[in-house]
Amino acid sequence: MKVEIWSDVACPFCYIGKKRFEKGLANFEHNKEIEIEWKSFQLDPTLPEEGAMKLPDYMARQKGLSQTEVKAMFQHVIQMADSEGIEMKMEQINAANTLTMHRLIQLAKTKGLGEIAEEEFFKAYFSGKDFTNIAILLEICETIGLNNAEAKEVIESEKFSDHVSKDIYDARTIGVRGVPHFVFNDKYTVSGAQSSETFLGALEKSYKEWKQNNNA
Rank of each mutant, 00 (worst) to 15 (best):
Q75N: 15
I5V: 15
E33A: 05
D57N: 14
S195Q: 02
E153C: 07
T173W: 00
H181P: 05
Y169R: 14
S66D: 05
I174E: 06
E158I: 10
R172D: 08
G178M: 00
D162I: 11
A193R: 03
K166Q: 15
K23H: 02
T46I: 02
S40G: 11
V154Q: 05
I78K: 14
A149R: 10
C14R: 10
K54Y: 14
H181S: 14
K159Y: 09
D82A: 15
K109C: 05
Q106S: 15
A60V: 07
F13L: 12
V183Y: 03
A135L: 07
A108F: 06
N133V: 08
K152W: 01
E87Q: 12
A135P: 00
I155F: 08
L55C: 06
T189A: 14
N213S: 07
T198M: 08
K23G: 10
G24Y: 02
E22M: 09
G192M: 07
S165M: 05
G192I: 03
T110W: 04
P45Q: 01
Y188D: 04
D44K: 05
F28Y: 03
Q67E: 13
S191I: 07
K123T: 13
V3T: 10
L65D: 00
A72E: 15
L113D: 04
H102N: 10
K71C: 02
E204K: 10
G201W: 09
T46Q: 12
S195F: 04
R61V: 03
F21R: 12
N31Y: 03
E142G: 12
D8W: 08
K54D: 07
K18S: 12
K54N: 09
G175L: 09
N214T: 01
F160D: 05
K159L: 15
G175Y: 09
P48T: 08
G51I: 03
S196V: 02
K2E: 14
V183G: 01
I134N: 11
R172S: 09
L113Y: 09
E197V: 11
R172K: 15
Q194A: 05
G51S: 04
E84G: 09
L113I: 02
N213D: 05
Q75P: 01
A95V: 07
D130T: 07
M73N: 14
F126K: 06
L107E: 06
F131N: 13
A193E: 04
N215H: 02
T189C: 08
Q67W: 05
A124H: 10
W38N: 14
L203G: 01
D82N: 14
N185V: 00
N133L: 06
